[in-house]
Amino acid sequence: MEEEKVILVNEADEPIGLMPKMEAHEKALLHRAFSVFVMNDKGETMLQQRAEDKYHSPLLWTNTCCSHQRDGESNIEAGKRRLMEEMGFQTELTELFSFIYKAPFDNGLTEHEYDHVMIGSYNDSPNINPEEVADWKWMYPADIKKDIAANPNEYTEWFKIIFERFYGHIMKNTPAQ
């Protein structure tokens, strides 16, 4: 099976080529990615715990799902595809914002991504893919923020970066209770 390729981009998110995913992470090259946050009607965010066999960040908690767009695939199409592959459900997604981040890992790989952050709504339990996801839970964003501060080593590096922006966005765009 051919290794999945990522879309290399410049700082304006313009495609400049394709590269095998591992090579892009080894060379820390900027590539397109997405992060999906699913929330329920109570305002909780669905988190996933990465599977134990993941090549980096195993058993760490992170957003509902994230991955890389395929060549010719829109951000929303990619988010919906990966949400089904990892969490076993579909929902409508809306793109909130995008930004560039860089997160090195202990194993020598680096996430250097032009990340498109999306949100969706769902109120049921997921049907997780055990090859991708070890566990899942609902948490209120304020509780996630507190838990990241208290237990930073239990969360993926990229989630800690992305969550700060996501939290700021939802706090700014949520009417006062």
Rank of each mutant, 00 (worst) to 15 (best):
P126L: 13
A12H: 14
M139Q: 13
T45Q: 06
A149G: 01
R70P: 06
H68I: 04
F99R: 12
W61G: 07
A142L: 01
L83E: 00
E14G: 00
T91E: 01
I16W: 09
D124L: 05
N75C: 10
E44T: 06
E73A: 05
D106A: 15
G17I: 12
M46Y: 06
F34G: 02
P130C: 03
I7N: 03
M19L: 14
S98P: 06
E154Q: 13
E26W: 02
T94M: 13
A24R: 03
Y122V: 10
Y114V: 06
A12V: 12
D135S: 10
E132M: 10
K172F: 14
E4L: 08
N63V: 03
T64C: 08
H25K: 15
A33R: 14
T174I: 07
E95G: 06
N10Q: 11
L29D: 05
H112V: 06
I7K: 00
N40F: 09
M139D: 07
A150P: 04
K42P: 03
I161T: 09
A149K: 04
E86D: 13
H68T: 10
I7M: 09
M22G: 09
G17P: 09
Q90K: 10
I162R: 02
D13H: 09
E92G: 15
N173Q: 11
K27W: 09
D143A: 14
E2S: 00
G108H: 00
M1Q: 08
S67I: 02
A12N: 14
I100G: 06
L29I: 07
A176V: 15
A24M: 15
K102W: 02
H116L: 06
Q69R: 01
E4A: 14
K145G: 04
M46D: 03
E154R: 14
Q69K: 02
G43L: 13
L29H: 02
P126Q: 11
M46P: 01
M19C: 10
S74N: 13
K160Y: 09
D53F: 00
A142E: 11
F37K: 04
R81E: 13
S74T: 15
S125C: 09
R81A: 14
E92W: 09
H31I: 04
I119V: 11
G88M: 08
P152V: 05
K172E: 15
D71I: 00
R50C: 08
Y101T: 01
Y122E: 10
V117T: 11
N151I: 00
V133E: 03
T45A: 12
T45P: 01
V9Q: 01
A150L: 13
N107M: 01
R50N: 12
P141F: 01
V6W: 03
F166V: 07
E154I: 05
P141I: 05
T91L: 00
H31G: 05
T110V: 15
M22P: 01
N123Q: 07
K146G: 08
P15I: 00
P141K: 00
A33D: 11
E14I: 11
M87N: 02
A51K: 10
E11V: 11
A28G: 11
H169S: 08
A28W: 03
F34V: 00
M171L: 14
H25V: 00
M19H: 08
E95C: 08
A134Q: 00
F37N: 05
D115V: 12
A78G: 11
D41R: 15
D135Q: 06
L83C: 01
L59V: 11
Q90L: 07
E73Y: 07
N63L: 13
R50I: 08
A28T: 04
C65A: 13
W61K: 04
D41A: 15
